[in-house]
């Protein structure tokens, strides 16, 4: 008597399909152990990048190990380890730390026509030492109930007397603010930037806040009428509560454009597996990964062929400042000193 195993286990076709997929996954997992793992020193936190890297592992069989810490710590570690490092790639959430790593000779030049074709020139190092993998812009969040978009124009306008007691800002200890002011200095000169920062500091409704989420919530809650934040924090809040009475505004559209920063990667100078590192970089700037990254982190892709998350599309188009992103690192100490002088805590 034959026992029909399919029947006994009451499996239907769908279950069989799932089983096969499982087994395929298992095999891919075994293959992953066969290949040499890639090591990424990452300032991007695990939840924001791991899902994508898991997908890379599933597709290629290459395992990726993450060492997560703050950007400056990772740069110091790379420098201290020298040729003994296990890092194949450095991943940071701002251009400044990539610039710093490149400046200290910790990143290798990658000569890849693929990357050059996929990543716009102003979002990568001219010598090919680092490449953006996603873009974020730091715009103005405003309270839709109290502010007409027509009343908004530029960053500098928020420094004017009509904004007295109506502005919320995140602390100047945050690197996104430091990058914003660093590029401002590069564009407009130190005096102009300082005048703006002094005006901002004078217009604050509350002492600078701990993060962008609190800043956006303070605007929504009526604490202040506008703030300066990265758009993905607002996108996250809107995803959780579409009725939240705040919106993003893109400043300086008649001028340099809204301030833009990146998450980006560079290949470590002493990478043990430079070819593998370059392959991951090329994969991550390809259309599927870029679309997935936009969906995962609510950021803009760097590859123009990729699909931006619909929520962000709803935020509208903008002109972004195409200033050389190396300025964010080069002028960061200058920007910090300026903010200290001007009283932005």
């Amino acid at each position: 008597m034959r026992i029909n195993i399919i029947k006994v286990l009451s499996l239907d076709l769908d279950d069989m399909r799932r089983l096969l997929i499982c087994m395929a996954g298992l095999l891919a997992g075994l293959a992953a152990h066969a290949a040499e793992p890639l090591v990424v020193y990452s300032a991007q936190k695990e939840p924001s990048i791991r899902p994508l890297l898991d997908r890379y592992t599933a597709e290629t069989g290459v395992e990726v190990q993450l060492l997560v810490d703050q950007g400056p710590v990772l740069v110091e570690r790379l420098a201290a380890e020298g040729e003994n490092t296990r890092a194949d790639l450095l991943l940071t959430v701002d251009a400044g730390n990539l610039w710093l790593a490149a400046e200290r000779g910790l990143l290798a030049t990658v000569d890849s026509p693929t990357l050059v074709a996929r990543v716009p020139a102003n979002l990568r190092d001219a010598q090919g030492r680092w490449f953006a993998i996603s873009r974020r812009v730091r715009g103005i969040v405003y309270a839709t109930a109290r502010v007409q978009p027509a009343a908004l124009s530029t960053y500098a306008a928020l420094a004017g007397p009509d904004w007295k007691g109506r502005l919320c800002l995140r602390t100047s200890k945050n690197v996104y603010n430091q990058s914003l002011i660093a590029t401002r200095i590069a564009r407009m000169g130190e005096a102009d930037a300082e005048a703006m920062v002094r005006g901002w500091a004078a217009n604050l409704a509350a002492a600078p806040l701990a993060d962008d989420t609190l800043t956006a919530q303070a605007v929504a809650g009526g604490e202040c009428d506008a703030g300066v934040v990265n758009m993905y924090y607002v996108a996250r809040l809107k995803r959780a509560d579409p009725a939240l009475p705040i919106a993003m505004f893109w400043p300086d559209q008649d001028g340099a454009g809204v301030h833009q920063n990146i998450a980006g990667m560079g290949v470590a100078r002493h990478a043990k597996n430079p070819d593998g590192a370059r392959a991951l970089l090329e994969w991550i700037t390809d259309v599927p990964a870029q679309t997935e990254l936009s969906r995962l982190n609510l950021e803009y892709p760097v590859n123009a062929q990729a699909t931006t998350d619909p929520l962000l599309v709803g935020f509208g188009t903008f002109k972004a400042d195409d200033v050389d992103l190396a300025e964010t690192g080069r002028r960061q100490p200058e920007a910090v000193r300026l903010m200290d002088r001007a009283g932005w805590r």
Binding site: G71, P72, E76, L100, K173, V175, Q178, A207, R337
Partner: peptide, 23 residues
Amino acid sequence: VSVLGIDTLSVLVYRTWYGMHAL
């Protein structure tokens, strides 16, 4: 203290290193 926005010496240590590249 950094969440509360109180600039103590510890906060200054971070600002000097991370912000001014002066470890």
